[in-house]
């Protein structure tokens, strides 16, 4: 069984971002970039399926600028077998990413595609569901547990009221939620080994996909800031304030 994992290069989880001076976007020059944390969970899950003997090959793909090779190498160090970069000037919209991934799926013929549920930069939470729609496959979005069978995959999904279990016919698309697993710490020898694993580069044209845009960002700004209030001495003072000053209890 072959698994395709898609990863995105984003501003690192720990970096505080600021709008560009002209408000046209977010300042990402000279900012530390990393693999999207949810995608790291997706890679980890694929590697675990291989370690369980259920998957035989893991192909990891990324779409974006040439520096995305760094996150692909990171995924190879975690245990993916080979990588594909679809090189573009900027990060395309989720629908375009889904179309590029669909074209990769048609080339690679995986039995399962795993993605992170959302990227922590644009917070869209769309690509996996869109890819599943374009392929006509089932989708296990916000997955917290996978049981991979021969014909079907059983997925426990995190939903607002609790958990839902669905069974998807294979091939299928999964998007990883936080509690699917905890990604491993990568050891140095594996980082060295990853440098020798194959990494192919393609252009959107090779995949027959046109990079169309339907969204224009007009402005990016910080939301109004909340001011810190006052400190209260004890529970009695707190209750008095909540009852008498702001009247919420």
């Amino acid at each position: 069984m072959k698994i395709l994992v898609a990863v995105k290069r984003v501003v690192d989880y720990n970096v505080k971002v600021y709008p560009k001076a002209d408000g046209s976007g977010v300042e990402i020059a000279n900012v530390k970039m990393s693999m999207n944390p949810f995608d790291e969970i997706a890679v980890e899950e694929a590697v675990r399926q291989k370690e369980l003997g259920k998957a035989t090959e893991i192909v990891v793909a990324s779409i974006g600028v040439s520096q995305c090779q760094e996150v692909l190498r990171a995924a190879l160090a975690m245990g993916a077998d080979r990588a594909i970069l679809v090189e573009t000037d900027a990060a395309p919209e989720p629908l375009v990413v889904a179309k590029l991934l669909k074209a990769l799926v048609e080339r690679e013929q995986p039995n399962l595609v795993i993605l992170g549920k959302q990227a922590i930069d644009d917070d869209c939470n769309q690509t996996g569901q869109m890819l599943a729609a374009l392929l006509g496959w089932g989708q296990g979005a916000f997955a917290s547990k996978l049981t991979l069978g021969e014909q079907e995959i059983e997925v426990i999904r995190e939903i607002d009221g609790g958990l839902e279990t669905v069974a998807l016919k294979l091939p299928a698309v999964i998007t990883a939620d936080l509690r699917l697993n905890e990604p491993r710490y990568v050891k140095l020898p594996n980082i060295m080994k990853a440098k020798k694993k194959p990494l192919a580069t393609l252009n959107p044209g090779d995949l027959g996909v046109v990079l169309a845009t339907q969204l224009t960002t007009l402005k990016v700004a910080e939301p109004p800031k909340r001011e810190a209030g006052i400190k209260v001495a004890d529970a009695a003072e707190l209750v008095a304030k909540l009852r008498n000053d702001v009247k919420v209890i």
Partner: peptide
């Protein structure tokens, strides 16, 4: 933009060949 809508609407958008605005 609940888990219901987040799961469903990107799939609708892709079938319509349009982008989606989240949240």
């Amino acid at each position: 933009a609940t888990t219901f809508g987040k799961n469903l609407m990107p799939r609708v958008a892709a079938l319509l060949d349009v982008t989606q605005l989240s949240d």
